[in-house]
């Protein structure tokens, strides 16, 4: 009986893994690029140039961060930027006007966004 069950269990595991891979591929296919996520979620305040001059900026009491400013962005660690995007400005001691995007973006997408921001500022995060 064990001789039969062992190959059966192995086949079931292989099938589960294959199905998992298929599902992951489907998710990946629908994943958005960091540049597109930046456009949809960030441009409204940070602007299409990323300099903090989005359409909502005139109505904010705290100016949105200029993502192209290497000096300012270089003072923030990647973890700090990740936390600000995921949990909002308050989580890193900044403005409530930066909302938490953790309910819209998963961790992988937020990590991609952090990389995208590093490309915009042409700077590295504070270690």
């Amino acid at each position: 009986m064990r001789k039969i069950m062992k190959p059966l269990a192995a086949s079931a595991t292989a099938m589960t893994l294959a199905l998992g891979t298929l599902l992951l591929s489907a998710t990946d296919a629908r994943a958005e690029s960091a540049a597109d996520n930046y456009k949809l979620y960030c441009v409204q305040c940070h602007g299409s140039a990323g300099t903090g001059k989005g359409i909502n900026a005139p109505f904010l009491s705290v100016a949105p961060r200029n993502h192209t400013n290497a000096k300012d962005m270089g003072e923030l660690s990647d973890d700090n930027v990740f936390k600000a995007i995921k949990e909002g400005g308050v989580a890193v001691g900044k403005s409530t006007q930066m909302p938490p995007f953790g309910g819209l973006l998963n961790d992988a997408a937020i990590k991609d966004l952090v990389k995208h921001l590093r490309g915009m500022c042409k700077c590295e995060g504070k270690k």
Binding site: S48, A49, K53
Partner: peptide, 13 residues
């Protein structure tokens, strides 16, 4: 909103 942005310099309206 993305479809209605006008950019002058680096400022969106």
């Amino acid at each position: 909103y993305l479809n209605n942005i006008k950019t002058a310099g680096d400022t969106d309206t």
